[in-house]
Nucleic acid binder design. Sequence first.
DNA 1: AGCTACATGTAAGACGTTACATGATTTT
DNA 2: AAAATCATGTAACGTCTTACATGTAGCT
Lengths: 175, 175
Amino acid sequence: MSLRIALLGLLDATGPASGYDLAKAFEKSLNHVWQAGHTQIYPELVKMAEDGLVEVESEGARGRKIYAITPEGAARLHEWLVGHEPSVVIRSETALQAFLLSLLDVDDAIAVVRRIKADAESRLAGLECLGSPGSELFTGRFALDLGLRQARAMVDWAEATLAVLGERKASLQGA
Amino acid sequence: MSLRIALLGLLDATGPASGYDLAKAFEKSLNHVWQAGHTQIYPELVKMAEDGLVEVESEGARGRKIYAITPEGAARLHEWLVGHEPSVVIRSETALQAFLLSLLDVDDAIAVVRRIKADAESRLAGLECLGSPGSELFTGRFALDLGLRQARAMVDWAEATLAVLGERKASLQGA
DNA sequence: AGCTACATGTAAGACGTTACATGATTTT
DNA sequence: AAAATCATGTAACGTCTTACATGTAGCT
């Protein structure tokens, strides 16, 4: 369902586009929010066209098909955005690592948390770059801000956790 | 793959347990980290037993089967925890809503963000409750801290966004 | 006798990833 | 002429959800 919403949202925000364009848009603007490759996007667009949410506006060179959102599609999009209940389906491998951290000895745990921290920092840097002046964000300024806050929360967690693990290590060595 | 890890982690941390027990454990301790119902857990345990990662230690009343982690399973768990590269597969419906917020008029946007805020606050309250003294957290203190930070980041984002939207609304009315 | 909690499973379908496959146009 | 990019698709497989299905034990 949400893949449909993401596609409708992109079509609504940026105007008609091909599946190829939409796949590119996922890569460069939506990727910190939702992920999808072309193998998922192409069949979905066909189904959405069957359901009257989008239509092939024109066909270009190399079999290029330009899809446009229909009024029905726009209505569904609006409905979802306004009416969707926040459902927190969390499935984070990093959080799972964090959950099981106490099963590791201190040195392993420190190594794991350092890796998580480095990853979060590079993600943070990437997002900061996206938001820097000059970069065009047709939409998604709010989502970028959310992404930044979440990445910072992860970095902060890693730092706090490293501090705790460092203390634990020191007290073990003292013993 | 990660479902296996979560199950191995629970078995390693708390000792032998039935599929039923593990499903309960998911509900009450892992649910803010990974989610899985019994229909996913039971078949997975069978496959894991075939792969030698767990074994049926004993059978109790009502067809109850107690699974225990094998040395092989413990080795795989350790390997994953230490070696797993952080892969950020983000698929957050809330972030998608945030991304498309500018497609809504200001009042709708405010309503959506308020709902997100309320949801994040109740999640935060639930986590704070889990962490309160007296509650037994056999493992997962670090994951709880991470969850708290992420929930707080969401609440902060909602507040900041509401402030921006409020200003936007005021300037529209002034015009 | 009926209700609740325990305990396990199957099956259909939605959603997602990886690998495979094809061909047109543009650039080097 | 070769390579890169554009552009679309299918198939197999794995994961996850929802609905269905079954039976036991304890409590009231």
